[in-house]
Every structure is written in structure tokens, then in C-alpha cells.
Design a protein around this nucleic acid. Structure first.
Length: 594
RNA sequence: GGGGGUGUAGCUCAGUUGGUUAGAGCGAUCGCCUGUCACGCGAUAGGUCGAGGGUUCGAGUCCCUUCACUCCCGCCA
């Protein structure tokens, strides 16, 4: 037995009654009855109630000890009387009669309470993260994170994947996010970049013949934060496999995620075989490439209805003539919803920058009619056509929006969420996974009209090289895929392009010369010329997986030491200024914007 | 870079139409209390109302500027 403790704070049970024990931990809570003092002692494992009476010579001293002071006590384990058993506590049938104690770590007046369910500002939580992390919920989240990572690592090992580390100081790449740069002392004027992902390294590992690789990989991207996106750094379960097709990757990852989510959550999985939705379908049916499939609402395109002569909705008809589209969302059996339900949604849409959401409800007397402000614009035949197209029924309502495709996707996607929320259609108690597949290789920047890679420039186009129509680059689809769960993008992956000539060709479409490709991707393009196996992989985001499992809406709740929105670490005071000498060694001169 | 929200005691918050000395709970300090588990009771201390400027006889409250935190857009192969 060591000098601090014989048991942890969640171990003592009835069987220990009568024994002298040593406990160590933080003072979670005191209840001082004047002649009787209760002390809840807390550690990583739990809480044990300790008790001391006035006759004990240490009583006065213990009464004065601050909360969150670290002490150890020795004392005798005793039964609690039946009325005083605490069922909330695993150790609640017993308590420890303190005989003596030591203060191991004193505690000043707390800037924020530890034992409290109150919420605190991020600022104080991050500044005193070590206190925040003592609190039950986040403490458990971080433990969950550890367990999830161990589990993933173990599963990967079982599947025959080898874990390798890849460099943290590497080279800047032209595609993708902004890099974090590190100046090189030995190479004046040159910079390393922190890896945005070990993308090129994992491909090199495949070219090196290792067959199956994984890593719990830190990734660094200098982009602005969101609630589900830490500034600076995050972790991926990075994996890559040789001699695989898309389906082989799917099989591995699907099973891995199903096992993980079943093990660490009680929520139901809506699909154990993840549905595969093409990128273009996703944008049509959900307005987004990260649809929340818990939401049953689906968007339908009914543009063609507005070229009919028996539809007199002139505003939409005019817009359609000039290239806009009309899409709609059908809500089941909403004919008895009050006017305010519809008007609120219309008002909400206007607030979101749309021109509003038109709506009508399908009803039937002798014939099918549309009720609502725009109902009168549709003939019975037109309504029948809409019903056929959207599978709507009498009693359903239809919300319509008309705009240019991109804006229309944006607003219908938001409307889908909003309407589902108002109608309470989303079951919070399930996980709905899906694959988004068939991403286009390229996209057009609407402003510059330039063709860019839409996702990963190293992805393999789907056609045979000879059949690819390079004159229509926007039509080229790639073996590129995402996993989405409950509307959260969890991973991105691809079958990689391992053919150098094809790589040069694709980069040339995005405006890179052969020389630029050779310069920027020298390691990889060179490696591909010396016997590269076909290979592919994916990289599920660990922080987001844990966020979903912990039922949290913010990534900082599952990150031990996160930075704030301005990418500052308030605890360690980073980033910070450096000395003149450090700058000089690095051949740097600061020229700050005023 | 842009838009929204928030900012009052150590912490969480209230503060009316602009009106006397800015309040509560928790925490801290002191006192009382032998069965609590959010113990209870009493008292005390604790405030640049984020900062600066303006309007006004008078500003926590209205206006302008600015800062911090946060959410969103842009960005995130």
C-alpha cells in the first residue's frame, strides 16, 4: 500500500466495513453541521462521503479547508444507517469516519465552482481548463474519447492495419486549407508546414509496400473555427489500403463505425448498411452534401410544372423562364396546422435571405383543390401532376421555393431542417449514417470562372483513362466519398490516382503545369513512377465521432485543451511573442499591420 | 473580411418608461447548528455596470465608436 491511498474514491463498499483505509482526492463538497462535518472526497473514479465529529482534534482544521483542496484521510469504513444511504452514489451504502488527514495540495478561492451544473463562459472555462476538466460531464467526455481511441486502435490492429507515425514538420501544399508555417533555422527563408493531413505520406506508405496503414493522426489547418471545427488542430483516424476498390474501403469503415457506435452509445443506428447517395442526388433531395437522414423530409424538383398554361403563378413562371428552378418540400397531414405555422416558416425564410416560402395545402371537395395564399394559381390537373411527382396526398402541404440552383439548394436545405424542427420530425435518439459518393472531380469558381479540384486532387476519376472526356472536366466524377452522420460530415476519402500521367493531366485542367506539380508534389509524383499499387483510404474525424457519441453540439466539449475562436490557448497563453534573438536566429523581421 | 447574440459582484444571473444609495442565488469571511448528500439559519465583505465618447438636470438603461467571448457566412483539397 502506498502512502497516499489504499483505495480510490469509488471502491469502498459494504465488504470493507470495519477496515482502516487511506483515501486521497479533492474536496468536492462540505456539509458542516457544526458538530458534525460531511466531506465528499472525489477522484477520477468517484465520490466517497467522509465524516468527522467535533470530538476529533482535527475537526476545526477540517472545517476550514477550502473546496478543491487535495487531501488524504485515514479512517474506518462504517455502514450508513438505512435512512442515510445515498442511492445516487456507488459508495452510498458506506462512509468513512475520518481519524486524521493531510493536505497534499492547497487550493485558493476558486474562480469558478467545480461542483455545479451551472454553465460558464468559454473564456473562464478555457483559462482554468484544469478546473473545468474536473467537472463530471466534461471529465467523462474526455474519458470517453480515450476509450473510443483505444477501441479504434484495437479494431484496426485486429484488422491487420499497421500504425505508423508520419512527419509533423513537412512541406506546404498548394491545394486545400491555409497552412501553419514553421520557419527553418538551418534553411534561412524557408518554411516547413504542419500537415493538413498525412495525405501524401500515407500514399507513400502504400507505395512502400506496407499494404494497410492507419494512424490517429493530428491534422493542422489554419482556418476559422465553427462549433464542430476546432481552430488549428484536430485528429483523424487516417487509414489507407492497397489493391482495393471503393467497396473494400466501405466494408472496413462501415463495420468499424457500426461497432464503435454500438459499443459507445445507446442510440439506435437507422442503417447498419449505410445508404449510398450520389453527390448530385444529395444536393437535389436534401440541398446539401451532408444531409441529416433522421429528417424524413425530401426536396422535389417541380420546375416543369411552371411551364404549364394552367398554372398562373406568374412570378415563379417568369423566374423559371430566366433559368431559375422550383423545388418543394411536402409535409404529411398538415392541413389542420394553424395559419401561424405556415406564416412563421415563410417569415423565417425571408429572414434567411430568401424571397419567402410559398405554400398551399391539398384538399378535396368534389375535386382536388389547393388552399392557401398561392393555391388559386394551380388548376386541378396541375395539382394532380404535382401530387404524382411528389407523392403528396390530400391533407398534405407543399412549401415552394424558386431561385437559381445554388441559392435554391441553400434555402431548401435550411427549410428542410426548419420545417422538421417545427413539426418535431427528427428523432434525437438515432444515428443516421450515409455515404455520399460520386463527387465531381472539378468545380467551377463562379466568380473567377476558374476550374478547381472540388475535393481531393489525388482522387481517381471513375472512367477508364482512355474514355475520360477531358473537354468537359465538370462532368468527370471521382471515386471520392464522404461519410455523413446526423448531418455531420464525419470523413472524407477516395480511391487515389496512382497513375502519374493522369495526375499531370488532371492538374493541368486545374491550371497547374507539369513543373508546378513536380515542384509541389515531388515526393509523391516521383514515387508513383516507381511501381505504385492501386490504393485508397479514408479518414474519419475522431473529434466529431466522439462529439456525436457524447451527444455534444460543440467540439470543445470533447477536446481536452482547445483553443478559442481566435485560435488562442488561454491557458498556455499561445500564440505569444518571441524574443528578438529567436527571430534573428530564424532570419525573420516582423512587419506588423497597424 | 461580413452578419447576429452576449458582456452588471469571484461564478450564474435580475435590473421596469432614463430617476434616490445597482440587487438575488452560489462562492468567500465570521457566528450558530450531530445525519447531511444542492444541509439549514444569521451576519459581513465584495461593483470602473467590458472600455471610450455623446445626448440629458440625471445613463446599467438611449446614441456612436471600440474591445472581448460566442454562433453563423466567407474559408475548410
Amino acid at each position: 500500500m502506498n502512502k497516499f491511498r489504499s483505495h480510490n474514491c469509488n471502491e469502498v463498499r459494504k465488504k470493507d466495513v470495519g477496515n482502516e483505509i487511506l483515501l486521497a482526492g479533492w474536496i468536492n463538497k462540505k456539509r458542516d453541521h457544526g458538530n458534525l462535518l460531511f466531506i465528499d472526497l472525489r477522484d477520477n473514479y468517484g465520490v466517497t462521503q467522509c465524516i468527522v465529529e467535533k470530538k476529533n482534534p482535527h475537526f476545526r482544521e477540517l472545517e476550514k479547508v477550502q473546496l478543491e483542496t487535495v487531501i488524504n484521510i485515514n479512517g474506518k469504513v462504517v455502514h450508513r444507517s438505512e435512512e442515510t444511504v445515498n442511492k445516487e452514489l456507488e459508495t452510498g451504502e458506506v462512509e468513512v469516519e475520518i481519524e486524521s488527514f493531510n493536505i497534499l495540495g492547497t487550493c485558493k478561492e476558486l474562480p469558478m465552482p467545480v461542483f455545479s451544473d451551472q454553465e460558464y463562459s468559454e473564456e473562464i472555462r478555457l483559462k482554468y481548463r484544469f478546473l473545468d476538466l474536473r467537472r463530471k460531464k466534461i471529465h467523462e467526455n474526455i474519458i470517453l474519447r480515450s476509450k473510443v481511441i483505444s477501441f479504434l486502435r484495437n479494431e484496426m490492429n485486429k484488422l491487420g492495419f499497421l500504425e505508423f507515425q508520419t512527419p509533423i514538420l513537412t512541406s506546404s501544399s498548394p491545394e486545400g486549407a491555409r497552412d501553419f508555417l514553421v520557419p527553418s533555422r538551418l534553411n534561412p527563408g524557408k518554411f516547413y508546414a504542419l500537415p493538413q493531413a498525412p495525405q501524401q505520406f500515407k500514399q507513400l506508405i502504400m507505395v512502400s509496400g506496407f499494404d494497410k496503414y492507419f494512424q490517429i493522426a493530428p491534422c493542422f489547418r489554419d482556418e476559422d473555427a465553427r462549433s464542430d471545427r476546432s481552430p488549428g488542430e484536430f485528429y483523424q483516424l487516417d487509414l489507407e489500403m492497397s489493391f482495393v476498390e471503393q467497396e473494400d474501403v466501405f466494408k472496413v469503415v462501415e463495420k468499424l463505425l457500426v461497432n464503435t457506435f454500438k459499443k459507445f452509445s445507446n442510440k439506435k443506428l437507422l442503417f447498419e448498411d449505410f445508404p449510398k447517395i450520389s453527390y448530385s442526388d444529395a444536393l437535389l433531395k436534401y440541398g446539401s452534401d451532408k444531409p441529416d437522414l433522421r429528417n424524413p423530409l425530401v426536396i422535389e424538383d417541380i420546375t416543369e410544372i411552371f411551364s404549364r398554361d394552367d398554372v398562373s403563378f406568374e412570378i415563379f413562371k417568369k423566374l423559371v423562364k430566366s433559368g431559375s428552378k422550383v423545388r418543394c418540400i411536402v409535409t404529411k397531414n398538415t392541413k389542420d396546422k394553424p395559419r401561424s405555422f405556415f406564416d412563421n416558416i415563410d417569415k423565417w425564410a425571408k429572414n434567411e435571405g430568401a424571397s419567402g416560402l410559398a405554400y398551399f395545402t391539398i384538399d378535396k371537395d368534389k375535386k382536388i383543390v389547393a388552399k392557401g395564399p398561392v393555391g388559386k394559381f394551380f388548376s386541378e390537373d396541375a395539382l394532380k401532376e404535382i401530387i404524382k411527382k411528389t407523392k403528396a396526398e390530400v391533407g398534405d402541404s407543399i412549401f415552394l421555393s424558386c431561385d437559381k440552383q445554388k441559392e435554391l439548394e441553400r434555402i431548401t436545405s435550411l427549410a428542410r431542417d426548419k420545417i422538421a424542427k417545427d413539426l418535431d420530425l427528427v428523432d434525437e435518439n438515432i444515428f443516421a449514417f450515409c455515404w455520399i459518393v460520386d463527387y465531381p472531380m472539378f468545380e467551377k469558381d463562379e466568380e473567377t470562372k476558374k476550374i478547381n479540384f472540388s475535393h481531393n486532387p489525388f482522387s481517381m476519376p471513375q472512367e477508364d483513362i482512355e474514355k475520360i472526356n477531358f473537354d468537359n472536366p465538370l462532368e468527370i466524377l471521382a471515386y471520392q466519398y464522404d461519410i455523413v452522420c446526423n448531418g455531420v460530415e464525419l470523413s472524407s476519402g477516395a480511391i487515389r490516382n496512382h497513375v502519374p500521367e493522369l495526375m499531370y493531366k488532371l492538374f493541368s485542367i486545374a491550371g497547374y503545369s507539369k513543373k508546378q506539380v513536380d515542384d509541389k508534389f515531388s515526393g509523391m509524383i516521383n514515387a508513383l513512377s516507381y511501381g505504385a499499387p492501386p490504393h485508397g483510404g479514408i479518414a474519419p474525424g475522431i473529434d466529431r465521432i466522439v462529439m456525436l457519441l457524447a451527444n455534444e453540439k460543440n467540439i470543445r466539449e470533447v477536446t481536452m485543451f482547445p483553443m478559442n475562436q481566435n485560435a488562442q490557448d488561454l491557458l498556455m497563453n499561445a500564440p505569444s511573442e518571441v524574443t528578438e534573438n529567436q527571430l534573428k536566429e530564424l532570419n525573420l523581421i516582423l512587419k506588423l499591420k497597424k
